[in-house]
Amino acid sequence: MTDDAIVRIRGLTTVLNGKTIFDNLDLDIPRGRITAIMGPSGTGKTTLLKHITGQMRGDAGSVEVDGENVPALSRERLFGLRERIGYLFQNSALLTDFDVFENVAFPLRQHTRLPEELIRNIVLNKLQAVGLRGAARLMPTELSGGMARRVALARAIVFDPALILYDEPFVGLDPIALNQVLLLIRTLNQTLGITSVLVAHELAAVQKVAERVYLIANGKVVAQGAPDSLADDGSPWTAQFFGGEADGPVPFQYPAGDYATALGFPGGKA
């Protein structure tokens, strides 16, 4: 299965401000599948996506995307690679200057000299796919959170990318909008064969679409496998994460000194 990996991460180590984000991390994203990356908040899931897109570089290790080693790419090659990657931001990141149509058309206008007629056809086609063709002339501020995310998705797929990275696509959505987004992710994967990477922590939603799940904690992959089997593989990490325990390998207390000493009691360990 790992033979045809579109993303291959080997020995990735990243230290940010003295804090180790990734510690010798290995990870493969299989081509044509939906893969979910899960983990407690603050474990660097979004940071991992930024490594895949080349916005951040690790201190050691390699990140190979579609056969190219991302950290070693020149700016031009990196931009070329990014045209083949769609990225869905957590807060949609629509350009507030432009209406929905122009937002979706933006990558086309920036990178191609297509005739206006063709741009119009492509954009309307993508908007139709996310069900928002009727909203083409609305401004981003007039959209609900779910609609904005669908517009952002239409923009992310306007170049028919080989890989889409979804950063927390389910956050803040009502059940209807959440299911609409789920449906889109699955449809895009099945009809266009786009490899999808989901960063999320909604287990129920992930179980509906993902074929493979990585659980990241403490800078390492602590568990991986199919979503159904993963929840009861016996590891304390999965037990805590999927069981939703407040305390466990991920401590309830943020690391701190001795409590009694902090309160000023003389009996504390000095």
Binding site: Q55, F79, F89, N91, L95, H111, R155
Partner: peptide, 21 residues
């Protein structure tokens, strides 16, 4: 605000240089 709402990052991701644009 473009920075705060990830619009600059989004441009980076769409291979548009936000400095130039």
């Amino acid at each position: 605000l473009m920075r705060a709402t990830d619009q600059l990052d989004a441009m980076e991701m769409m291979a548009v240089d936000p400095i130039a644009y």
